[in-house]
């Protein structure tokens, strides 16, 4: 699976061009499988290719944050565009994840 890679203790996820409810089930399911099976500590979401995201994207990030934060893990957000930043800020999730350009 090209979109998912484990590097050291980080799970890297390359997010698709459009993130809506239709696409989010697959991402959540795969991410959780890696988190449990490979015991990753941190999760990195790369939004470089993403041009659209709705609240389903927030659901993906929030769900993963809940799963790893109690063990000291962090969620990183790479390359969010302006709209994704706004969505993160409106939802309050911007304060919980680390945003990296």
């Amino acid at each position: 699976m090209d979109e998912f890679a484990v590097i050291d203790n980080c799970l890297m996820i390359r997010m698709p061009e459009e993130i809506d409810h239709h696409r989010c089930g697959y991402i959540c399911e795969m991410a959780d499988r890696y988190i449990v099976q490979q015991r990753v500590e941190h999760v990195v979401f790369d939004f470089e290719d993403t041009r659209f995201m709705d609240s389903s994207g927030i659901g993906i990030l929030m769900g993963r944050y809940k799963k790893i934060s109690c063990f000291g893990g962090k969620v990183f957000v790479l390359h969010p565009d302006r709209q994704i930043r706004r969505i993160l800020n409106i939802s309050g999730l911007g304060r919980l994840v680390e945003i990296v350009d």
């Binding site: 989010c24 089930g25 959540c28 609240s55 927030i58 659901g59 769900g63 969505i87 409106i90 939802s91």
Partner: peptide
């Protein structure tokens, strides 16, 4: 994995 932000986003 629903965030509960749907209506908030529509309003925003």
């Amino acid at each position: 994995n629903r965030s509960g932000m749907g209506f908030s986003f529509m309003e925003a």
